[in-house]
């Protein structure tokens, strides 16, 4: 489901160029759960961005959800993200002017779900993450854990084959972080999607099937 071969990535040109990924190899099977750890600046977020089609592939081969990401154009990448990928961000990435339901509906709208079905699906997704009673609330009125659960509901709106989470518990306290990760894992199991999580938290990483540490641009299995 996720297959990375000989991935090189660097920022800048010439002598000041900074290599962040160097001949990186990675394999996660369908429905698998991989946790990537590493020090700050190790390239974890860059790796996740490349997997999600947010960053162009400079060198190497990246297969995600059956698509060779390195071969996709701008429009195709947008479609790839829209149809196959779900993102969960550390800072939730919710649109503050929209309610929880509307945030989910935006993802459904982008996924071309008919307007008449969106509300029902959004409510169903919010119920799935335990926020049925907070659907009409705007982000400013939700707690950190609730915000992340809304973000997770939104990420699942397009029935992604791969769920990419960039430090999803980074802004949450320990108890909430644990509950969010429980939910994320449950959703992965129920929906059978592949989960790749970037985290600094070794306890959360320990729960993954594949524990990978990014060091000097290469992944090391733990």
């Amino acid at each position: 489901m996720v297959s990375v071969t000989g991935l090189n990535h660097r920022y800048g040109e010439g002598p000041t160029a900074l290599t962040v990924l160097c001949g990186l190899e990675m394999e996660v099977e369908r429905g698998g759960y991989a946790a990537v750890t590493g020090v700050s600046g190790a390239g974890k977020s860059t790796l996740l961005a490349i997997l999600g089609g947010l960053e162009p592939v400079q060198q190497g081969r990246v297969l995600v959800a059956g698509m060779d990401v390195s071969l996709l154009s701008g429009c195709e990448l947008a479609r790839f993200r829209r149809e196959r990928i779900g993102f969960v961000f550390q800072d939730f990435g919710l649109l503050t002017m929209l309610s929880a339901r509307e945030n989910v509906e935006v993802a459904l709208a982008l996924a071309r779900v008919p307007r008449c079905d969106r509300r029902r699906q959004a409510d169903s997704l919010l119920a799935e993450v335990g926020l049925a009673d907070r659907a009409g609330h705007r982000p400013a009125r939700l707690s950190g854990g609730e915000l992340q659960r809304v973000a997770m509901a939104r990420a699942l709106a397009n029935h992604p084959q791969v769920l990419l989470a960039d430090e999803p518990t980074g802004n949450l306290d320990e108890g909430t972080a644990g509950r969010v990760m429980d939910l994320l894992e449950r959703l992965r199991e129920e929906r059978g999607c592949t989960l790749v999580v970037i985290t600094h938290n070794p306890e959360l990483a320990a729960r993954a099937d594949h524990r990978l540490r990014l060091s000097r641009g290469r992944l090391v299995s733990l």
């Binding site: 993200r81 829209r82 149809e83 993802a107 939104r154």
Partner: peptide, 16 residues
């Protein structure tokens, strides 16, 4: 800036 990035990450095209 950030909201535009989020929308694009969710699959919004440039036209959207």
């Amino acid at each position: 800036w950030r909201e535009i990035g989020v929308l694009k990450a969710l699959g919004a095209s440039d036209a959207d």
